[in-house]
Simulated scan of single mutants.
Amino acid sequence: MKQHQFQPSLPPPANTVGIVGWLRKNLFSTPLNSILTLVMAYFAFTMIWSFTDWGLLNANWIGTTRDACTDTGACWVFISVRWDQFMFGFYPSQELWRPKLFYWTLAILVALMAYEKTPKRTWIFIFFGSAYPILMAGLLEGSMFGLPVVDTHQWGGLLVTLILATIGIVVSLPIGVVLALGRRSEMPIISKLSIAYIEIWRGVPLITVLFMASVMLPLFFSEGVQTDKLIRALIGVVMFYSAYMAEVVRGGLQAIPKGQYEAADSLGLSYWQKMGLVVLPQALKITIPSIVNNFLSLLKDTSLVLIIGMYDVLGIGQSANNDPDWLGYSTESYVFVALVFWVFCFGISRYSIYLENKLNTGHKR
């Protein structure tokens, strides 16, 4: 009896795989989708080409005065002339090495902490959260190292934005974790106090909190005690976002199956061991998107400090727009500020996606 011979499998049709297959499946699957794709592609191309023509091809890059700019494209000369103000505010020019050193050390430490194979990484985290802010505060202000004192009202631009965002992120997360644990505590006093704190701060807008921190907070200190405006803004931002962070962490705690708590109890772990070794690592892992979303909101909300007389990078842009010598170039200013915020927000977002993929333990369906 002759044995049946199977023919080798044929490759799939060329128009169903690769780029062509993806286009047919997602953009040109039906006549209506094809029409919508072409219309949207036309508008997208028009907008991209217009911006490229204005912002790159016909833009003005070189010069020091308004005369170097033409009406055919963007005047990035305006940004280059105001570069130091955008980066450092009104910091004395002869002392700019200090904020520059802060930028470089911050970038190096963040890179070392983000790279998982960095030796002594835990100690770097501890240094970043404890000694580093004190050292940088002393360096920037100057009182600690015998340098000329630079008052914080001279700080501004990206310097203020990064200080507010970095300290707000680093401090609000652990406070939020404590508040979340307190809200779920079985001790009525701790639970009620945590609930009251969270609901009060979540019930008022950040603008109100900044006004209160700037105007009312000094009333709670002893007579003659002076509090810096930047410190007051930091306290307001931390208190406000720690309440939001607490609710995010609480959602993660509630998502952990009850069996995890019972398993930790069966091992004889104490409350803090159970939370630190079993529950919190899982809760923080599944709440990474929400935590990062709060971080991004905090970074962008730093622009609200303008209402209490502090000039972050957006405030510097708005003040530069009022310069009589450069009237009419506000578009370039806002585009540059938007690009600065986008770069930081995009970087944080991509790193959070990397963390999600790295910490994924196979629970995806």
Rank of each mutant, 00 (worst) to 15 (best):
L32T: 15
Y103R: 04
V248Q: 03
Y42W: 08
T361N: 10
L158P: 07
I48C: 08
F336Q: 08
R66A: 11
G259D: 11
I307E: 12
S297R: 11
I189P: 00
L147G: 05
L280C: 01
P281C: 06
Q318I: 11
G55S: 08
I189W: 07
W83Q: 11
M187F: 09
T208R: 01
T152D: 10
V238I: 15
S9K: 09
P31V: 08
P11D: 07
L140V: 02
L56R: 00
G168L: 07
L109F: 14
A107H: 07
A74M: 14
V237G: 02
H153F: 13
L162E: 10
A114M: 14
L327M: 14
A213S: 15
L96Y: 01
I231M: 13
V279R: 03
Y244S: 08
L32E: 13
W83E: 09
V77G: 09
I353K: 09
R98Y: 03
P31K: 10
F86I: 08
P148F: 02
S352K: 03
N322G: 01
V77R: 07
L38W: 10
H153R: 12
G315F: 06
I48H: 01
K117H: 13
D67L: 07
N33D: 11
E199L: 04
F28A: 11
L253Q: 11
M47S: 03
L299I: 10
T46N: 05
L269D: 05
P281D: 02
P174Y: 03
A137D: 05
P148A: 07
T152I: 03
R82A: 14
G203I: 07
F295W: 10
F220K: 01
P281W: 05
T37F: 09
T105F: 10
S93K: 09
M40Q: 05
T70H: 13
A165P: 06
W342S: 15
E95L: 06
A107M: 14
L106S: 15
G362T: 08
T161P: 09
K100L: 14
R183A: 06
V110K: 00
S130F: 14
Y261P: 00
I200Q: 00
P92Y: 02
P257R: 12
A233N: 07
S222T: 08
G168A: 09
T70S: 15
A131G: 01
I353V: 04
P8G: 04
P174C: 02
S9H: 05
W83G: 12
L327G: 14
L299R: 00
S222E: 12
L269E: 04
F344K: 01
R202K: 15
I79E: 13
S297F: 04
I316Q: 07
G129D: 00
S194K: 06
S222Y: 05
G317P: 01
N26K: 10
Q282H: 05
T208C: 12
L355P: 01
D265F: 02
N321W: 09
T70M: 08
L217G: 09
L36N: 12
E262D: 15
I195W: 13
I175R: 00
I348N: 02
S172W: 01
A68L: 02
F341H: 13
L217P: 04
L284H: 02
A41V: 06
